[in-house]
Amino acid sequence: MQFPHGVRGFGGACPPPKHGVHRYQFTVHALSRELDIPENASAALGGYLVKANSLGSSTIEALYKRD
């Protein structure tokens, strides 16, 4: 699998040059317990476990563009 930044994980907000404004949403969850998610788990499983164990959450939105 090819990753945009060469490694697995979030590489930062960086839309392509001259591609206009991109919207990024960042959500933080307060969890009821530490989650033991396998390293090779799918995003769907990770998302399910986070939502199933979330006590609350907050989202911020940021706009980025490159000239």
Results as ranks from 00 to 15, higher is better:
57 S>C: 11
15 P>T: 00
41 A>R: 03
34 E>D: 10
37 I>N: 10
39 E>G: 02
22 H>W: 14
24 Y>M: 08
28 V>F: 05
23 R>N: 00
21 V>F: 04
61 E>H: 04
27 T>A: 06
27 T>G: 02
58 S>D: 01
39 E>V: 09
12 G>M: 14
41 A>V: 05
49 L>Q: 14
33 R>V: 13
9 G>E: 09
54 S>T: 12
1 M>T: 14
47 G>E: 13
30 A>H: 11
62 A>F: 09
41 A>H: 03
64 Y>Q: 10
14 C>W: 15
25 Q>R: 13
4 P>Q: 08
23 R>A: 09
60 I>D: 08
16 P>R: 10
63 L>A: 12
51 K>C: 07
44 A>Q: 13
17 P>S: 05
22 H>E: 12
14 C>E: 10
23 R>W: 00
32 S>R: 15
33 R>M: 12
23 R>V: 13
54 S>D: 08
53 N>T: 10
60 I>K: 09
67 D>G: 11
53 N>Y: 06
44 A>V: 09
44 A>I: 12
65 K>A: 10
3 F>C: 09
56 G>T: 11
39 E>W: 00
31 L>E: 01
20 G>Y: 02
26 F>K: 00
5 H>T: 15
31 L>K: 02
18 K>W: 06
8 R>G: 03
35 L>P: 07
60 I>Q: 10
8 R>Y: 11
55 L>P: 02
64 Y>F: 15
23 R>G: 03
57 S>V: 00
32 S>E: 15
7 V>H: 14
11 G>Q: 01
32 S>Q: 13
55 L>K: 15
55 L>F: 03
49 L>G: 02
54 S>F: 04
15 P>F: 05
59 T>F: 00
56 G>E: 08
22 H>Y: 03
61 E>L: 04
18 K>I: 02
8 R>A: 11
66 R>W: 07
65 K>G: 02
38 P>E: 08
7 V>Y: 13
49 L>A: 04
59 T>Q: 12
15 P>G: 04
53 N>L: 08
16 P>D: 10
6 G>R: 04
59 T>I: 08
26 F>T: 09
59 T>K: 07
26 F>G: 07
53 N>K: 08
38 P>R: 06
6 G>K: 08
34 E>N: 12
44 A>N: 04
61 E>I: 15
7 V>E: 14
53 N>Q: 06
51 K>G: 04
4 P>K: 14
61 E>F: 00
65 K>S: 10
17 P>D: 07
25 Q>D: 13
48 Y>I: 02
5 H>Q: 14
9 G>W: 09
13 A>L: 01
58 S>R: 13
1 M>A: 10
43 A>W: 13
41 A>F: 01
36 D>L: 07
42 S>A: 05
24 Y>G: 05
